[in-house]
């Protein structure tokens, strides 16, 4: 709790929740600032509903990406999978140069409009930083530790579970953090292919030239991303080698 108070995560989180639920209450303010737009607050869907849908997309895709990415990295760093290590690392690095918006757009012809292409694009794109970091994290475990663990009679599974993964955890978490940040942004663009997200007011506003909608969506999306990132920062501090906190 002390950590939470020391970071802005709590305050920005509270601001986010307040705006999420209280946006309609700001209607007079927007009405005064933008007299030509009625209704002054986006009302095609509730902001809470948009947020939950956005969160659902990101959570589903990122969880799957984190699990699959770590599994792939574990495979690529085992003796049996070592042959695939180079190509996996390369694919992860090169894949990240693909513009996320392009990946999303390319998922549409394959999967149709709606939430499905968004989740799949988020998943595929989200895999890459996780794979990249998990490989780096596992390979960063000093060889002497691995040997000591084996020498004491740990099974390969025990070496992975008790030594390699805990030591790689901070690096893996950093990868997941990147993955989630990108997923939140890309899911926002998912509104253009029919997913329901906090980006929906932005695109409605851009299409209908209704600036307040753009503003409302943009502020909420930005806060969502920033608060999530700050929560990851808190988690990263927790996960840091217990001794170095």
């Amino acid at each position: 709790m002390r950590i939470a108070l020391k970071t802005p995560a709590l305050w920005l989180g509270l601001l986010f929740v307040t705006l999420l639920t209280g946006m309609p209450g700001l209607s007079p303010v927007f009405g005064w600032a933008f007299p030509r737009v009625r209704p002054a607050v986006f009302d095609r869907a509730g902001f809470v509903e948009l947020f939950l849908s956005h969160l659902g997309l990101v959570a589903a895709a990122s969880t799957a990406a984190a699990l699959a990415g770590v599994a792939a990295a574990v495979f690529a760093t085992r003796p049996a999978g070592r042959d695939f290590r180079t190509i996996a690392a390369l694919l992860a690095a090169a894949g990240q140069t693909f513009p996320p918006a392009a990946v999303l757009a390319l998922a549409v012809p394959a999967l149709g409009f709606g939430a499905r292409p968004t989740v799949v694009a988020l998943f595929v794109y989200g895999l890459l930083p996780v794979v990249e970091n998990a490989i780096a994290g596992i390979e960063g475990v000093p060889e002497g530790l691995r040997e000591a663990a084996q020498g004491m009679g740990m099974t390969p599974w025990q070496v992975l579970r008790r030594v390699e993964l805990p030591l790689a955890a901070p690096v893996i978490l950093a990868g997941v953090r990147v993955s989630v940040t990108v997923a939140i942004g890309t899911a926002t663009i998912g509104s253009t292919v029919g997913a329901l997200t906090l980006g929906t007011p932005i695109f409605d506003g851009l299409a209908g030239n209704k600036l307040p909608y753009v503003l409302q969506g943009a502020v909420l999306v930005a806060l969502f991303a920033v608060v999530t990132d700050l929560l990851f920062a808190v988690l990263a501090r927790r996960l840091q080698p217990a001794d170095r906190r």
């Binding site: 942004g185 980006g199 932005i202 999306v221 930005a222 991303a225």
Partner: peptide, 11 residues
Amino acid sequence: QTVPSIALFGL
């Protein structure tokens, strides 16, 4: 860096 691009454009 964490603010999604379309949100920053919008802001």
